[in-house]
Design a protein around this nucleic acid. Sequence first.
DNA 1: CTGAAAGCGCTAACAA
DNA 2: TTGTTAGCGCTTTCAG
Lengths: 335, 335
Amino acid sequence: MTTMDDVARIAGVSGSTVSHVLNGTRAVNERTRFRVLEAIESTGYRRNGLARSLAMQRTQTLGLAISVLSNPYFGSLVNTIEKVASAAGYTIVLADTHDDPEREEQTVNTLLDRQVDGLILAPASSSGGSNEVLDMVRASRTPVVLIDRFQDFPCDQYAPENFEPVRLLASHLLELGHRRIAAITGTRGLSTTIERTAGFIAAMAAAGIDRSAVLVEEGRSTADGGHAAMDRLLGLESPPTAVVSLNNAMTIGVMKSLRQAGLKVPKDVALVGFDDFEWADSFEPRLTTMAQDIESMATQAVQMLLQRIQGSDAPFARESIAPFMRHRNSCGCPD
Amino acid sequence: MTTMDDVARIAGVSGSTVSHVLNGTRAVNERTRFRVLEAIESTGYRRNGLARSLAMQRTQTLGLAISVLSNPYFGSLVNTIEKVASAAGYTIVLADTHDDPEREEQTVNTLLDRQVDGLILAPASSSGGSNEVLDMVRASRTPVVLIDRFQDFPCDQYAPENFEPVRLLASHLLELGHRRIAAITGTRGLSTTIERTAGFIAAMAAAGIDRSAVLVEEGRSTADGGHAAMDRLLGLESPPTAVVSLNNAMTIGVMKSLRQAGLKVPKDVALVGFDDFEWADSFEPRLTTMAQDIESMATQAVQMLLQRIQGSDAPFARESIAPFMRHRNSCGCPD
DNA sequence: CTGAAAGCGCTAACAA
DNA sequence: TTGTTAGCGCTTTCAG
């Protein structure tokens, strides 16, 4: 491979001049400049970003550690992050945590080793108090912002509101007269799961539903998990008349289960879900959901991260993004 | 930041010993080894992957250049690629081409500058003969494999079959008695668009449909585009009785348009689409589609790329991945 | 079993 | 306006 020195030799100048021509970091005589450009052209020289980054102590790179699969919004999330980041001259390095603490530690380590300038992380289940991964990040002094889930850690965090939206969803079902309502819950241990489940329980409690009649089934945040959970619910001697699915993927699984059982939504079972779908307006049943504002979350997260990279020492943000209800007909309300 | 030399000093050994301890690249006395590990622990040392990569001349990094938004399978694609890559010790660097030649050149350049060990590219519209971007890649001697769309260029390529599947889709509608059928086409210029459109035209021609009665409307590969295209079709004095949407996102747009017009699928208009949805089995209308085997495409692509990185000089692969039909009820067939 | 030292390719102070 | 040179932090050959 041609290096900068090769180019310099050919152009009859020093390496530093080539560097400055390339980066526009100091005035260069128009003639020499031209010779350098010519030498670059003729050799097909391409600068080595690694060497550059090593010397400059920054990589213009943002690490994104997230569970690809279990994030229903992965596409728009990445899209938004990429858009904002690349507009600021940053590239995204992606690593999948699989929502598993062990993998998470691994991937975050990889990202940190690669000297990302900043890190966006959707933290995997926090096993209670301290968070080793975040401690590692802190030790590396790499700016970090958490998305999708809050953690008890001093750093910027952007995540959806969970409790209230789910409480609303469940209340809606209650208002429609349902008394036997089930919640299909996500990956155990995630703060989102905990909060959403709490919202459901709270609604049921407020309605005076007997504790023993409150159905909570684990759907592990996946379509298959949701499917299995709904199957279990249908096997009960007194199955629920309404269901609230606590995330996107599980909602699809629940629908599959219901369809296979020959049950119609909302006629036989009412269904509402956390997380919206772009197509939800056009297919029957038209799902009543709580839609998250992913773009806003992602945009804010990246912007804050970029500020931190610039050295901002503003107090840490911890912002709840409020979902909004998409009231359609799967809950049993008329169109 | 602590460097390797700091660790070496503390452990009372040379830098090279620390390096070897870290990488297990040569036998080290158990005692010195321990001292080194201890020094690492005590300092919280983290190795600088940049310096390492620079010295080793490889980054263990794969570049993924793709249009995030316009790829309906982005999620599973990335998921699969990440899975295979990370199993082989590679990290993914993501760059969005936006399916725009200019942006594509930019992003590929970034990736190449960053010294990715290999590149996976979903090429943007080829403006005819030569492909500058691919020439650049070749000049850099970076192994590359193309996905999603074929190009007239000597490198490994994995893309879906387009012509035959669409021909089949259209034929099916023809067999059901439709004579006025429209195709909603994707981004102009993409090979996929061209081939799919050709498949549609071929089916119509074979059925002896008059050329002037063959409806082809541009949907630009987006939901909005599909929506608008369908709106236009509905505005015709003699609107189509059946539609084949040539990609995922557009299918949703078409459904939106139809719903807004108060039309039912398949009763008022039959609809079939290229690209499947995970939820298509559970919502009405249940879409009849051609499902791509993304995982297989992605897996093969990454594996081949890894081989190239290892130095394989096998003849270039150019593999068509055959989609398979998901026959459901949106075409008008009974369940 | 271990260390010295020469790179890897670039940036940026300093000097001219 | 340009060149010299000392790093950036690591790997790896060659000696010992």
